[in-house]
Design a protein around this nucleic acid. Structure first.
Lengths: 307, 307
DNA sequence: CTACAATCATGAGGCAATTTCATTATTTTA
DNA sequence: TAAAATAATGAAATTGCCTCATGATTGTAG
């Protein structure tokens, strides 16, 4: 035994199981691929057992690897629970967490996270600030909300931003759309299309703000409140829309619609949580953010970490 | 959070709970007192909570400390179980473990350890080589035993020694013995006494071999097979005996007998496990030794670690 | 089938975290 | 009250982990 097992190793195994590759897992735990490779090699040498088959994508765990993975899940949950208990000893059980949301699709990942959080902090009053506000951070400072989900971290006095995750917005269109074979759309391709989107101001539509407006393209518009409705309209050739990849993947897999990248580099979206500086130290806040990330990475496809 | 929780911290907490003091715990985990002091301070800072009250002997855990300690017990057990499972994947379930014992009192700690081991390795044939042999290591090489308990690590080809623990042999006498007030006995004090001991050769009696014989003192003798019988004889003023402190502590506490140190430095005894070199890598052997140490330190008072 | 992209492995070197050392402060015991 | 044991502290040193740079391997597209 040259290297003793540590929690760090178990966390690596968890990331590895979720990502299916060493390099992806490395990003998840904020280390280099090399670091993880060394770490895993040391583990395998310490136990004298192969823990994975690397020659496959995603990589497969051996029975020994599975056993350690089971330990990791088990131990990680218990450590988290203990740390929550310590936080409660330190700061008490109660608190308030009113969440302001500006994006419609956010509810997809917000609900499961809130459910998990409610289990862990039953005495924290959890709420969603209703309506879609152009300035969720304003609600923070006027104390009508305690946490705001937003897509940019504009520096502001008394407010701190915590990165959640990043993802790609893809263009969706009908399967028989004339440009369905085009893998990448440029701003000009939108000129004669109808753009379908949620009924929110243009500044909240990344496609308009970052791509179309700079290029002076101004397609026809149509709005809808519901994600499924938008997808239905797109499939019915009423127009095209920009959606998070993770929101439309099920429909793509089933062949209901087609998708394309927006711009050569893709239209990247980021999500941050904004908090009042005074609240930044609260344990239940940290735990909520942790839960959001954990739940989201576990359930949404194609997410990437955000520094 | 400046320091992330690691298994190392949990092991420290376990040692601390068992020893009741930082410096004793440090010996247990083979680190310096300073290292543990730093480690604990970092933990407390990371969680923003006091984990112990230091101004007491033995030190008391705060509720937060208790919570972390509970985590440590829980996690340590699960990690051990997982590592046993890995060892079984590597080396199989079965094996043979015949134990040769040369000392009578050894059974006190051997039985609980064997019980625990049997739970963990049900497919390993566990046995005790009956009778008391002057040369247990010989049984090893002739393959009539797989592990020998002995009090000295005499280098021998093909045999490796693993330290178990160390303890002090104390002299016991009747409460109204003329020398009962003497805290330390020297060799000469034995001249007119009757020495009661197990019926084994003199070389196996540390008191005779290390103290009396070098001083040319040769007291009267009387033997008995059973520890309780020897204690009964001592209490009945039939003579004095040398016994491990941990074996007689209950009787001392109840006031049945009195004790004294043997020689100014005390008569220190050590116990080693001898194995055939070929078997030194076997996981169930390591696990057995680990179990012996764990069980013994947890139940026998006054043990000390042995490098 | 070859070339390219992505993923993984490896060794050397740097750096940070932990440990030890040396000393002082505190508590317990005689 | 002194002496012994235990704990805290800061600086130095070591260990071990991570990153960097590069080569090997695997998967994929043309």
């Amino acid at each position: 035994m040259q290297s003793q097992l540590e929690l760090r190793h178990l966390k690596t195994l968890l990331a590895l199981a979720e990502c299916g590759s060493v390099s992806q897992a490395a990003k998840r735990v904020f280390l280099t691929q090399s670091a993880l490779s060394h770490q895993l090699k040391a583990l395998e040498e310490a136990y004298g057992l192969a823990l994975f088959e690397r020659k496959t994508q995603p990589l497969r765990f051996t029975p020994a690897g599975e056993r350690l993975l089971a330990l990791a899940r088990d131990v990680a949950a218990r450590v988290m629970q203990a740390e929550r208990d310590l936080a409660r000893l330190r700061e008490g059980e109660a608190g308030e967490l009113r969440i302001a949301v500006e994006c419609h699709t956010c509810f997809d990942w917000l609900m499961p996270a809130m459910d998990a959080f409610r289990q862990h902090w039953p005495a924290v009053e959890l709420d969603i600030v209703s309506g879609f506000h152009a300035d969720p951070v304003g609600l923070l400072l006027t104390r009508r909300a305690d946490l705001a989900i937003c897509s940019e971290a504009e520096p502001q006095d008394g407010v701190v931003y915590q990165p959640l995750f990043a993802y790609e917005m893809v263009l969706i269109m009908a399967k028989d759309h004339p440009l369905a074979a085009k893998p990448v759309w440029q701003a000009g391709d939108f000129a004669d299309e109808t753009l379908i989107h949620y009924p929110v101001p243009d500044v909240m539509l990344d496609l308009v703000r970052k791509v179309l407006k700079p290029a002076g393209v101004n397609p026809a518009r149509r709005t809808s409140e519901l994600t499924v409705a938008i997808i239905q309209l797109v499939a019915s050739r009423r127009g095209v829309a920009a959606m998070p990849f993770w929101a439309v993947k099920p429909y793509l897999d089933r062949g209901y619609i087609a998708s394309a990248r927006i711009g050569d580099a893709g239209l990247q979206s980021e999500l941050y949580a904004a908090l009042r500086q005074d609240d930044a130290g609260l344990a239940y806040m940290h735990d909520f953010l942790h839960t959001v990330r954990e739940q989201s990475f576990a359930t949404l496809p194609g997410l990437s970490v955000l520094a």
